[in-house]
Design a protein around this nucleic acid. Structure first.
Lengths: 195, 195
DNA sequence: CGGTGAGACTAGGCACTGTCTAGAATGGTG
DNA sequence: CACCATTCTAGACAGTGCCTAGTCTCACCG
């Protein structure tokens, strides 16, 4: 499973790029290895050299998704922002993702039959690490007290992910999602509930 | 699309029952209309009389899932429980569901390409209504102040759903899920963060 | 410099899927 | 009794994922 081109150029990357678009525009049911192969101008068996089965392609997409999210989170670690704005930006990144790449987000948060795939682990770790420092440091500045980084981060991530799922599924309009995100910040920062 | 038996007995119900099991035991990829038909002893075209396409079957499963969750939530409305225990039970119901029926939960929270299906709406409404009264009344008792029922409920549901997704995906062990649920209650009830 | 072996790809085939069609059986309603 | 919508059968079609055998290409090594 190399990551260097051979004959075609760089089939693996091209398949992933195209798959991402298909996933975004037509959903997971429309994602077919054979169609990807046709679009790339290779035979229907060619993808197999890079992805032994469909699930491997999906895993790679999920991994990329986490990497992208991790990039955004890491950028926020060193961004020159007030604590509250930093947290807001982190949450908004998740909402943006869920809106723009709803199908991919579903895949990322879906239950894997045989546990989480090892291929996505690095991205997950990076995302969690970056989120963790953003959440912990920001909240400690806002609250003036230490918080458990692991549990607080998981709590915050769960909440933003839940909101993202809510708007991603179209069950709640985007504007309300924004409001909920702000409410979430109030809750974490001041312990205040919308009322 | 009747809901009364004809020749077979009650094919529609039998298909749904069996589909639920398959979904639980082997995931969504293993769920095939033809296999369901074989298991039920009918021809491969028979399911079409009840579900015009596969997505309709999935929608019906999702609808049932919401109904089940709504039942549990409604039971809590009239349960003789202290506010905190009531909230805890509501959250735990969601966690239980995500653990026992991970694939179905994924389906329920996934982004539908063409908006939410009308068939699931009643269940969603019931669940939301019941959750809303549980959350609002419990929190107002705990906090001694009025809260916005809609936003607070959505906030709480998002958080528990996020935690459920976390443990359902195996990315976090079940025990930590329990801890996070308790942390979530502390946060909503007292505004306290784990630290 | 000439093998040689691993990886990338082709081409054919298989079992299976969802969906469509035409038609047969069934049972209630007029 | 005749009608007719509903349920179901049976066959077909395009499309899919996966497997296999074989071909091509290139890097590496004796």
């Amino acid at each position: 499973m190399p990551d260097r081109p051979f004959r075609h150029g760089n089939l693996r990357q091209e398949l992933l790029d195209r798959a991402e678009v298909v996933l975004r525009e037509r959903g997971i049911e429309a994602l077919s290895l054979r169609e990807l192969a046709r679009d790339a101008g290779v035979s229907h068996g060619a993808p197999r050299s890079h992805f032994p089965h469909r699930a491997a392609l999906l895993d790679a997409l999920v991994a990329r998704g986490y990497e992208r999210l991790a990039d955004r989170a890491e950028a926020l670690v060193h961004a020159d922002l007030a604590p509250r704005e930093r947290l807001l930006a982190l949450g908004r990144a998740q909402l943006d993702f869920a809106l723009r790449d709803a199908a991919l987000a579903d895949l990322m948060y879906a239950a894997k039959a045989d546990g989480p795939s090892p291929a996505v682990e690095p991205g997950v770790q990076r995302l969690h690490a970056a989120s963790s420092t953003v959440v912990a440091t920001s909240l400690e500045m806002l609250r003036g007290e230490r918080v458990d980084p692991l549990r607080t981060t998981l709590l915050m991530s769960s909440l933003t992910q839940g909101i993202a799922a809510l708007i991603g599924s179209g069950r709640v309009p985007v504007e309300l999602g924004e409001v909920l995100l702000a409410d979430a910040l109030d809750l974490f920062a001041d312990g205040r509930l919308p009322g």
